[in-house]
């Protein structure tokens, strides 16, 4: 039992399960899944489907945060990639043509990758602080997206494109398979090769890892490139969901949600360690929280207050001083935990 509680995914999973439990108690239909025409429907399925863009962005953010960086530009990158793809489809005039769609999707992804490479160049080569380097693109990106869509909201009508976010495969939403694929690919690349360990080494001390022979520059650059590419894909999913490229609304505040998901999953913002499974749990937690808020009848506009409460709670739990306070309080209540609980954490 103690070993389970010590596991770093313990608290994130508890939070997620508690949320689901609260939902189920207040509305039993929450966990029910119905089958219609061989497709699964239900609140949980909706969460799986709607979390896909956030999942992609948060995976990229995990890698960036592991290198002790941060990527504020992901929302703007989403806007750019969606704008590029939809503008190509609209200009072609043939929205159902597979080759046009392939070109549009490829171009959208390339745009995302280019944004990521740009961020990486500023940070890894020029040595600019990650917050400010990605702030540049965060400010300029939406402007660029507006230029691409010529100041309008580009709308298209294309069933194959719509399929990306709204289609079903073997009963489950296609978008969920996209998340799964992204999780699998990132996990294999990071955890089945030495890349993950090297990324953590760079996050702990870039200079020391460079002296130890790790190519820190390439690894940092790669993390931002991956974040850009994943955000690009998320932008395509978003535009496919609403069938429009809205340069102002696409991915608005998603950088904050993604950072929150990563932190909820137990990855420290100080870098040097990351947990992909934690991020996955964090993303589902945020999506469930959002659906809870909607269900409780709280106007979506007040959602930020709940988010603030969650952020404060999470950062307090992560703060070692707060844990010591709680530990002291607990020590008065029970003798067993009176001895100081030492947690070995490299990052904090």
């Amino acid at each position: 039992m103690n070993a389970v509680m010590k596991h770093r995914l313990f608290w994130p999973v508890v939070v997620l399960l508690a949320l689901i439990l609260v939902n189920t108690l207040s509305r039993p239909s929450f966990v029910s899944i119905t089958v219609q025409d061989g497709r699964l429907y239900g609140s949980l399925i909706d969460i799986l489907r709607n979390s896909a863009p956030l999942m992609l962005v948060a995976l990229g953010m995990t890698l960036v945060i592991a290198t002790r960086g941060i990527d504020l530009s992901v929302g703007a990158v989403m806007a750019v990639s969606g704008a590029v793809a939809l503008q190509i489809i609209q200009d072609s005039g043939d929205a159902a043509n597979p080759s046009v769609l392939a070109v549009a999707i490829g171009a959208g992804l390339l745009a995302g990758l280019a944004c990521g490479l740009w961020n990486g160049f500023l940070i890894a080569v020029l040595g600019i602080q990650p917050i400010i380097a990605t702030l540049v693109l965060m400010l300029a990106g939406r402007g660029i997206a507006l230029l691409i869509t010529r100041g309008f909201i580009t709308t298209i009508n294309s069933d194959p494109y719509k399929f990306m976010a709204q289609g079903y495969v073997v009963g489950l939403p296609f978008a969920f398979y996209v998340s799964l694929a992204a999780i699998a690919i990132v996990a294999v690349i990071e955890r089945r090769t030495a890349l993950g360990v090297l990324t953590e080494a760079v996050g702990i001390n870039p200079e020391a890892s460079r002296l130890a022979g790790v190519r820190a520059r390439g690894i940092i650059w790669g993390a931002y490139a991956a974040s850009g590419l994943l955000a690009g894909f998320a932008g395509l999913l978003y535009s496919s969901n609403i069938m429009a490229a809205d340069a102002n609304a696409a991915g608005l505040y998603i950088e904050l949600d993604a950072i929150l998901a990563v932190v909820l999953g137990g990855t420290s913002l100080a870098g040097g360690t990351f947990s992909l499974a934690g991020t996955v749990v964090g993303v589902f937690t945020i999506q469930t929280l959002k659906s809870t808020i909607t269900f409780l009848g709280v106007p979506p506009a007040v959602t930020p207050v709940f988010m603030a409460a969650v952020v404060v709670l999470v950062v307090l739990i992560q703060s070692s001083r707060f844990r010591r306070w709680v530990g002291r309080l607990g020590g008065r209540l029970s003798v067993r935990s009176a001895q100081p609980v030492e947690r070995t954490e490299v990052a904090s």
């Binding site: 904050l256 950072i259 930020p304 207050v305 988010m307 952020v311 950062v315 703060s319 001083r321 707060f322």
Partner: peptide
């Protein structure tokens, strides 16, 4: 509480934004 300024002020931003609504 050794919270990073970025995150702490983000919480402040969420709070103020929500309270405004």
């Amino acid at each position: 509480f050794d919270v990073q300024p970025f995150i702490a002020s983000l919480a402040g931003m969420f709070l103020a934004r929500g309270l405004g609504f």
